[in-house]
Design a protein around this nucleic acid. Structure first.
Lengths: 205, 205
DNA sequence: CTTTGCCATGAACGCCCGTTCAGTTATTGA
DNA sequence: TCAATAACTGAACGGGCGTTCATGGCAAAG
């Protein structure tokens, strides 16, 4: 055995540790339980039991239950914005609207738990945490608003009220996660295409 | 004072009573609190305190907390179906779709608590109660499905998939209650018209 | 006025909650 | 091999939970 040195980088782990296993597991279990039963109905003991640990151990990873919820929602919104930033934003407003529609549907279909929490558990955030999440959500919705306004200006879209249209389209697209099942009669691409057809017509493109 | 006899009918009240005050108050307070904070986060003691009564007294009106939730949801769905049955169902599919759209928006705007609960607290119902509510919801959505199918058959609508369109339209319309405020820049009629414009175009009419 | 019985009280039941913490275990670097 | 320390346990804290029930006040009926 050779004297291979420690893998460098940001590795700063000190002695005896496997927090890099338990930490993610806690977030993963909490995400699933919060989505299935709701924040208020899930106890720290229940999360701990599912992780395979005692309740007290959770507090090595989160200062309290509220932070656990906030971190999940915050992480989700930042991931969503980052993924959206990488997706295509070029072309005509119509092209961009199609890209947005397909991106929204496919991204959220892969993360049903996250979106469920992001929209259902807002009222369980403390006021300070709420404004942060609400701000990030606003940033995401602004992407769609911008596309709609550009389309109206270019004459591609005919919309009575772009602000209301933004809300309407977001609500419609979010609905997908409440009924779509991978094993069902439609593929995800089918669903994207059906929704895109309705969105396109709704904006008058 | 004359010997006016007891008001007849189904009056079967026996001796000393004001349950016809407390009963409705409990449902009213529970509805508001469940909508604002969520079923799991609202305790029986909290409901009782807001009604102005001790927790034990609630059990003169409901066998348990679960029944309180179920009765609120069940009552809401039956009222919704009854109101819908009275609304206009005549004319072309386009007429009927417009009537449905405007009915749905205006009915739900007047009952924001009810719809919030009906869509957010499904997971807090016992399995038996869940299937009942889900069945009533299906009946309501079938009204829209019927209109869409009729429009496709008559050639008025061009829809890739009426079943998916039903879900999409319902989601879109439900979204109104998450942002609409009476004091805001738009009247309810404005909102109805904006949404009807989008729905009409989305179905290709 | 007396009886009737609805309606509400308030204490109690056993249980679960979020969180803390002193002590134990397990893993690592030296 | 051993000291250092991260990770976890298990018990405890005060408090809230849904629900039950013996008790009593009080309005109406007779």
């Amino acid at each position: 055995m050779n004297a291979r040195s420690v893998i460098d980088g940001d590795m700063a782990r000190t002695t005896g540790s496997h927090s890099d296993i338990t930490g993610p597991r806690i977030r993963e279990v909490a995400l699933r339980l919060f989505a299935a039963e709701g924040y208020a109905a899930v106890s720290m003991r229940k999360i701990a039991a599912e992780v395979g640990v005692q309740a007290g151990a959770l507090y090595n990873y989160t200062p309290d239950k509220q932070s656990l919820l906030f971190d999940l929602m915050h992480g989700h919104m930042e991931d969503l914005l980052a993924a959206r930033a990488q997706a295509g934003t070029a072309g005509t407003p119509t092209d961009r609207l199609e890209a947005f529609t397909r991106f929204h549907i496919s991204y959220h279909e892969e993360r049903p738990h996250e979106i469920f929490i992001a929209y259902m558990e807002l009222r369980n955030l403390t006021p300070e945490n709420f404004v942060v999440i609400e701000g990030l959500r606003g940033k995401y919705e602004d992407e769609l608003s911008g596309i709609l306004r550009a389309g109206v200006e270019s004459g591609e879209f005919t919309l009575v009220d772009p602000r209301v249209a933004t809300r309407a389209i977001i609500s419609m697209l979010n609905g997908v996660t409440t009924w779509y099942r991978r094993e069902g009669r439609l593929s995800l691409t089918d669903v994207e295409t059906i929704y895109w057809d309705m969105v396109r017509k709704a904006v008058g493109a």
